[in-house]
């Protein structure tokens, strides 16, 4: 088990290096001088050159790269051009908001998704099943920002049940969490249902019934754990789609998290900040996948043993 974890982490390192390299090069080949953007259009060229030199942007790309990686390894991701503060610090300040939003959204997704999926499987092809699967289809097909805008318009603007933006009270957190979680809830519900329906055909389910378990006992005790194996993996994999969704949700609802931070960084060509947020997000996604794998291991004795 431990060796497996180590192996997985080792595999992740090249991925991480690749991402750093990619983002580093991309930011430097796109048109538009970051210093010019930062200073405004009407600054004289000499000034721009001087600042570029100060920031080390005049050096060859590979020098810049190794310097950056060297500092990053020591936890220093540079200084934000616009905010003029340490990037690591900025990220660590806004990250808790993103975590809170994602956790709430994940809770929404898990609870709604699982309950709807289980109920739909039990009431297969009946009214509730159709209703839930209809809703989840809408959930899966709607882009996050659209869900966010619709929720904001209806419940915050028209009905005024919730604040339009911000993230400082629990009322303010509800809409962003639902907006971000809805999509995942839809896929979890669909997957839970289809897995359960399939699992319920198995011979060991018949055995469970034959030994005297009631139907709910059969489902909770014998079907769910088997049906959950792929779902758990999917739920952990959705950490990545949660994060990309968080970018949009945070922008719509003005949540001061990593997502809004990177959008701002793009708009202002704040290279160190953008690099920092991208690398940070990558690490989170890699960790998410690792957790998914490990969970699968814990749940399924057949895999646990093969390790």
């Amino acid at each position: 088990m431990l060796s497996k974890v180590v192996k997985r982490i080792a595999i992740s390192i090249p991925v991480l290096i690749g991402v750093v390299l990619l983002i580093f090069i991309m930011l430097r080949v796109v048109p538009g001088d970051p210093v010019a953007t930062m200073m405004g259009e009407h600054v004289n060229p000499a000034m721009i050159e001087k600042i570029s030199a100060e920031l080390g942007l005049d050096q060859p790309l590979y020098v810049q790269f190794f310097k950056y990686v060297g500092n990053a390894l020591r936890g220093d991701f540079g200084t934000s051009y616009r905010l003029n503060r340490n990037v690591t610090q900025i990220i660590l300040e806004s990250f808790p908001h993103t975590v809170k939003l994602s956790v709430l959204a994940a809770l929404v997704a898990w609870i709604i998704g699982l309950v709807a999926g289980i109920v739909a499987a039990i009431r297969q092809n009946r009214l509730l099943d159709r209703l839930f699967m209809g809703c989840s289809l809408v959930g899966v097909s709607m882009p996050v920002f659209m869900t966010a805008l619709v929720l904001q318009y209806v419940f915050a603007f028209k009905l005024q049940w919730f604040p339009i933006s911000g993230f400082d009270s629990w009322q303010a957190m509800i809409l962003p969490a639902i907006a971000l979680g809805w999509n995942s809830a839809g896929s979890i519900a669909r997957m839970t249902r289809s897995n359960l329906v399939e699992i319920l055909q198995n011979d060991y389910i018949r055995t469970a019934r034959a030994k005297g378990l009631r139907e709910h006992g059969v489902i909770i005790g014998h079907a769910l754990k088997n049906a959950m194996l792929p779902v758990v993996t999917m739920m952990a994999l959705q950490i990545s789609s949660m994060l990309s969704g968080a970018v949009l949700t945070e922008s719509v609802f003005g949540v001061p998290g990593i997502g809004r931070l990177s959008v701002n960084a793009i708009e202002t060509r704040d290279m160190p900040l953008l690099q920092g947020t991208v690398i940070f997000t990558t690490i989170i996604i890699i960790l998410g996948n690792l957790i998914a794998d490990l969970l699968y291991n814990v749940l399924d004795p057949r895999i646990r043993e093969g390790a």
Binding site: D203, R206, N226, D300
Partner: peptide, 12 residues
């Protein structure tokens, strides 16, 4: 007792 001993027990 069922016809299929290989699949009649819950694998988990």
């Amino acid at each position: 007792i069922f016809q299929e001993p290989m699949t009649s027990l819950n694998p988990v």
